[in-house]
């Protein structure tokens, strides 16, 4: 955290020249991947210099409004309480929707329900299907710090979804049987899931798709009541897809009309993103390499996003 803040402070000192485009990176893979794609296009088609700054959501979001960071390629709008207000007041400009067919909710490894004979894992919770079914399985998901209850690995505190998940646990009466744990950080949450999966242990945790975790491990989303807008905030139904937008600082939008036009057309899907993340995980690839692979594989996107001359520039560079 400190390092990120320090990185921000150092870079904010030297971002006065506006040619360099600064992408915000909040730490998860899909955002890093989309950054890499947009950075590659900025460099090859528009001859712009790019840079990526990492930090937590609140830190980078503040920097985005101030202009030390220019844009987010993947804004989890529902997880940032101030977002809609800031867009309305014009402190941020929403350029477009990157994709809005993602999923989030409570996951368990598939072997918990179905077993995995190849690893010698018995199905410990064979009838677990809905979130409320968790009631019957508190002994499967025992909390190591409190043997009388089960443990649900919750969302990261401060994300909007965290409040909703807490309400959901209460609504289904799970709080009686489970401790809802704040994992403290994104990395700790994914480490818990990965650790449990590698060991073949049961775990129930909040997570979201697309991510490399959901790509690499066979996780099962627990079902919930169908989505209804009025019930969602109270945690009484499944989570809707979050609109993942491309948004930018107003000054940056004013200064870079051509590049912004590309950004406003930038649109992918959950499926495309998870393919790219899988490519990264399987090949141990860098994000930049994955971006090149992606643009070759889904060549038609270039025509959708870019004027023909710019698209040719990118293609020419990809051939090199």
């Amino acid at each position: 955290m400190l390092i990120c803040v320090a990185a921000l402070l150092i870079s904010s000192g030297c971002t006065q020249q506006s040619e360099k485009i600064i992408f915000g990176d909040v730490g998860w893979d899909s955002m890093k991947f989309h950054n890499a794609v947009a950075m590659y296009i900025a460099e090859t088609a528009y001859d712009l210099e790019t840079e990526e700054i990492s930090g937590s959501t609140p830190v980078t979001y503040g920097a985005l409004k101030k202009g030390d960071i220019h844009l987010y390629m993947e804004t989890w709008t529902d997880n940032i309480p101030a977002y809609s207000g800031d867009v309305q007041s014009g402190e941020l400009i929403e350029l477009g929707v990157n994709y809005d067919d993602n999923i989030q909710g409570l996951y368990v490894p598939r072997y918990v329900v179905e077993g995995d004979p190849s690893r010698g894992i018995e199905p410990l919770a064979p009838d677990l299907k809905m979130v409320e079914d968790l009631k019957n399985y508190k002994d499967v998901f025992t909390d190591p710090e409190d043997a009388s209850k089960g443990r649900i690995y919750g969302s990261i505190s401060g994300w909007e979804i965290d409040e909703i998940m807490r309400k959901k646990v209460e609504y289904y009466g799970l709080d009686e049987f489970y401790n809802y744990i704040d994992p403290g950080s994104d990395a700790a949450l994914s480490a818990s899931i990965a650790g449990a999966y590698e060991k073949g242990e049961p775990i129930v945790a909040y997570y979201w798709e697309p991510t490399w975790i959901t790509g690499k491990y066979d996780l099962l989303l627990l079902e919930d009541a169908p989505y209804e807008e009025s019930l969602y905030r109270q945690g009484k139904c499944e989570c809707p897809s979050v609109r993942l937008t491309v948004c930018a600082n107003p000054q940056f939008v004013k200064d870079n009309p051509e590049f912004v036009e590309f950004l406003s057309k930038y649109s992918t899907s959950s499926e495309l993103t998870s393919k790219a993340l899988m490519y990264i995980n399987e090949n141990n690839a860098e994000y930049a390499d994955a971006a090149k692979w992606f643009l070759v594989e889904y060549d038609n996107l270039l025509d959708e996003w870019l004027p023909s001359d710019k698209a040719e520039l990118v293609r020419g560079e990809l051939l090199k």
Binding site: S56, P58, I156, S157, G158, I181, D182, S185
Partner: peptide, 20 residues
């Protein structure tokens, strides 16, 4: 340590930061 789920004052600091 609160970034890996330790309870107490540290997790209050993290929550404060996360929620601005």
């Amino acid at each position: 340590c609160s970034m890996i789920g330790a309870t107490g004052l540290g997790s209050e600091v993290i929550k404060g930061i996360n929620r601005l």
